[in-house]
Design a binder for these strands. Structure first.
Lengths: 268, 268
DNA sequence: CAGTGGTCTAGACCACCTC
DNA sequence: AGGTGGTCTAGACCACTGT
């Protein structure tokens, strides 16, 4: 990161000040008509400095930034946290803070996942985390038009692209209609191919929702990110040619690494 | 997906303890194989209590929770913050913390915005924040297939539903092709109607992206939320029947209040 | 005015990584 | 061992909302 910051004195309306602090760097002053917290001005300053750097480069440690800008480490951490959430920085415990690569764009479309990733020039893999027949919880039952506690096959997978964890995906299927699909998935990587070839089922439409949730500690661990960081939760219900619901999928993507794109056309 | 923690006493591996603290309430113990911070266990505990309450009801103040659970106010705030981000609580400076109403679902479709909201039984309004012809920044120029700095009409509106701020929307149009559209919008509320009636332009397809960003202080002010809270940024490029790009739109929605849904069909 | 959430400080200990 | 980010504490002052 550069050497000096531009702008004038910080420390806007409030707060006790250490009287004899060294000149240190400056974070931009608060503008007039708006209330701008110190951590936010620091964030803007850091954002600009980060813009000059390349992905993967390390930035100074929290303690260094704290002294350089003459603010507490808490304030530095608040600024860094927001830059992490926005996908500009990545932090690793014990290692440091680094400039993040740009976000990746994932298309919402009714085709094979594997196919999508490969089309973007990356190597798709997946790790089966869990495959079990369980009683349908109410949301799953509703989506699949089954009764609550009806047996459903749950398939939980960690999706990777170029070996980087990309999403945690849980698929639910009617365990009676798709008997044995759990075992079959132990040796197959494409659920859609399996549905087509073994169950003569083709998906023709889907409804997908997107919202923001936060990573639990275990989710954060699997996605190699921090607890409490925003994730994008995609849920998808897909129907076959007879308009029967076939799959209900919940996928969690890192919000700092992915954006989604949908193609819309005029309603018929 | 998700996880649970049962159990008793808090204060897992670390931290100095006030020796004579009152019995206080308990937050669930940390489970074995995972590292679960105290604020996260508190969050889970609070999440459960909130589940029993109705939207709009007040919860205890930060200082009360702090003593009740025998943790610092910082820890309480971290737990509350995550519940706010997840849309379970709403905080208002000077007033208190309240149970939030459920998220609203907004459909991604190529029809009038106003129409969409009305269809969901709410009253759509909008406030024109700004209408100016400006030189196209590079991203706008790219999307509209214009040269950088070509004149574009910018229309910035605050969208409301039942008088609640819903989104900040900035639309960009080719100022030469749609000359006068800025003035016309002063007296019209529907851009799409205006395009159809005054410019004989009908939109037939669009590409929409969704990603997470954070609220700046001014955005937070307009959306009546907090600085640094996650927003969903939707960008949309729409094309007419001749496949010319017509509009480029950037909309910011509160991530704690909205989710989005898209309908997909088998690619042709 | 008292009480709320919002910001900020200074310092401590922890878990984790690299050397 | 030493340094990193992650968590937590106790306390302060602020801006804002209600009375």
């Amino acid at each position: 990161m550069g050497e000096q910051a531009e702008g004038r004195i910080a420390d806007a309306p409030a707060a006790a000040r250490v009287s004899d602090a060294p000149p240190a760097a400056r974070i931009p002053d608060a503008p007039i008509g708006a209330r701008v917290p110190k951590y936010y001005r620091l964030k803007q300053e850091l954002r600009q400095e980060i813009g000059q750097l390349s992905p993967g480069m390390a930035i100074p440690t929290e303690r260094v930034l704290s002294t350089r800008f003459a603010v507490s480490r808490t304030t530095v951490r608040q600024a860094l946290h927001e830059l992490v959430v926005e996908g500009q920085l990545q932090r690793f415990q014990g290692r440091g803070t680094f400039v993040a690569p740009p976000k990746l764009t994932q298309t919402l479309q009714l085709t094979s996942y594997t196919q999508d990733i490969a089309a973007s020039g990356r190597r798709p893999t997946s790790r089966l985390l869990d495959a079990a027949v369980v009683p349908a919880p109410s949301d799953v039952a509703t989506r699949l038009e089954l009764r609550v506690d009806a047996p459903v096959q749950r398939l939980e997978r960690l999706r990777l692209a170029d070996d980087e964890p990309m999403a945690i995906e849980a698929v639910y299927l009617d365990a009676e209609r798709f008997a044995g699909v759990g075992d079959a998935m132990l040796h197959s990587s494409s659920l859609y191919a399996l549905l087509r070839e073994q169950y003569a089922t083709v998906l023709v439409r889907a409804e997908e929702t997107i919202e923001t949730v936060l990573a639990s500690p275990s989710e954060a661990g699997m996605l190699d990110t921090g607890t409490g960081l925003p994730l994008l939760l995609l849920t998808r219900t897909s129907w076959d040619e007879q308009d029967r619901p076939v799959e209900y999928v919940r996928s969690l993507y890192r919000g700092d690494r992915y954006r989604f794109v949908a193609n819309l056309s005029r309603p018929a």
